[in-house]
């Protein structure tokens, strides 16, 4: 490195620091990417919901596009992003405020991912059933 120090690659499974390399860094990247995505959705969501102030017909026309299969899949991705951002956000708070948070940051990431997976297993079939029932006109 430029300061003359040598940096040895950490052994497998041992990240050097909390935020550089391995799970600490990649959870940070995912937190950022999901946060940016959710923010852009939020802009669209507030604007389209504001159509309730225009007319019932205008709102129903826009919300109708959300019930198409493609949007149905996008919504699964959106809920997945929100779920990860929420659970990892709670992990970040525990790292910041809990005295043992930094020590258990990696374990807490796996716990967050397991809870996220359980929530998604509960949500995805339920949502896709509704979306495809709508498509079939049932």
């Amino acid at each position: 490195m430029s300061n003359g120090q040598t940096r040895t690659k950490p052994a497998k499974g041992q990240g050097g620091t909390l935020y550089r390399g391995n799970t600490g860094m990649w959870s940070w990247v995912l937190h950022r990417v999901t946060g940016i995505g959710i923010f852009f959705f939020l802009i669209e969501h507030v604007l389209s919901t504001a159509l309730i102030r225009v007319s019932p017909e205008a709102y129903n026309a826009v919300i109708g596009t959300y019930k198409t299969p493609i949007f149905g899949l996008v919504e699964v991705g959106l809920v997945a992003a929100i779920g990860f951002h929420a659970l990892n956000g709670l992990r970040v708070m525990l790292i910041d405020f809990w005295s043992k948070g930094a020590k258990y940051q990696k374990a807490m990431l796996w716990i967050a991912i397991v809870i996220w997976a359980i929530l998604m297993i509960g949500f995805t079939p339920r949502h896709l059933m509704n979306v495809f029932a709508e498509m079939m006109g049932a």
């Binding site: 709102y59 019930k67 919504e75 339920r126 509704n130 709508e134």
Partner: peptide
Amino acid sequence: LMLGEGIRAIDF
């Protein structure tokens, strides 16, 4: 999205 008919029920 989870209760009732979920997204199908959302309209004005």
